[in-house]
Design a protein around this nucleic acid. Structure first.
Lengths: 189, 189
DNA sequence: CAAATTATGGACCATTCGGTCCATAATAGC
DNA sequence: GCTATTATGGACCGAATGGTCCATAATTTG
């Protein structure tokens, strides 16, 4: 019934996500974004609505791809090993590396952008639930203290995960940062 | 030998800090900032150099006032009580409240702005040292495990402090967040 | 093939961006 | 009071901002 779009919607969305992720929302110009992904303004506004709409779509996309992959990985193998694996991934990041996109959005826009805040919270909750599952399974397997509140421990893990990313972003205390994983795991047992 | 400036340098700097703190660097326009603090462009460029220079000055100012006050408070009273106090301050924050300015700068600019990253790291190190002092004093007083590496524990505390701020920014898990303080303190003992 | 519908390229828009410049005002030392 | 020096207000700048509009191209349905 009409002309077909010539670009791949998800491919463009992934490109936008990368740019917002690296540079943040405000610092990423629409013109720059469009030339990067090779899209005209008409096509962009026709398909995505606005820059802010695209941020929200990028955030959703991040949750259902990148974050979901991390969540899936938390279900693989021994709960204890999976948790350690998830932290080692973060700890191996280079100084100026990207932090989780949820964190970028939470800090840049969480204070005044309710639509962003709702999505960030949903993403964090999904991650927290995945950690909680891992902890419960670990408790059942005798890896962690069975009398502890799994909800509190999973929130504790998420907080540590994001806190370590902040320290990493500032290139701070690389050695102590890596050693803190032992402290974190000890708190579970 | 020349005309005197009519504005208070530190007062303007504090005003700029508040705006960068709330809104971030990119989203804070220079014109808006100047009208907010009531300063002309000439005076601004004469005294501060550029928007970016003012960000750096704001960051320095933050460290030597706000952060330093937090550090000073860590030295008051029982080490254990002081640490708990510092976390309760963060945990009492409202959903959309400000997070530490160091974190705002680390996330928005830490990835590509070396001058900012250096300052953020210095601030985080000062805070980490203050926690380390508190832990050492607590160890000497028998409040914490004496055989633990104070450096690792203090880094662990800083990570938790910033991680909890991220969760707070997203208005996530208020109850579990507050309960996690017990888990954190347990890791010290 | 015709009509209806959607996609595309790019010109165009007002506004805002950070920053410069200059004429004028105010102050200190002589 | 004169001179040197700095501060101030505001006009001005080119570039960039997010967003709109329209003529044209491509496609499906009838």
């Amino acid at each position: 019934m009409a002309r077909l779009r010539e670009f791949d919607y998800e491919q463009v969305l992934d490109g936008a996500l990368q740019l917002f992720w690296r540079g943040g929302y405000e610092a990423t110009s629409l013109d720059g974004l469009l030339s990067e992904v090779g899209l005209s303004k008409s096509s962009f506004y026709g398909a995505f609505g606005s820059k802010h709409d695209m941020l929200l779509a990028s955030l959703d996309r991040y949750i259902e791809t990148v974050l979901q992959a991390n969540i899936d990985d938390l279900r693989r193998g021994s709960p204890r090993a999976a948790i350690i694996r998830s932290f080692e991934k973060i700890l191996g990041f280079q100084p100026t590396s990207k932090t989780c996109f949820l964190q970028v959005c939470a800090i840049e826009r969480g204070g005044h952008d309710q639509l962003v805040r709702m999505r960030v919270r949903r993403g964090l909750e999904l991650l927290e639930e995945a950690y909680r599952d891992a902890i419960v399974r670990g408790q059942e397997a005798g890896q962690f203290a069975a009398d502890a509140d799994a909800r509190v421990l999973s929130t504790f893990l998420v907080a540590n995960l994001y806190g370590l990313q902040v320290l990493g972003r500032a290139n701070m205390a690389g050695d102590a940062r890596k050693k803190s994983l032992a402290t974190i795991m000890k708190a579970l047992a």
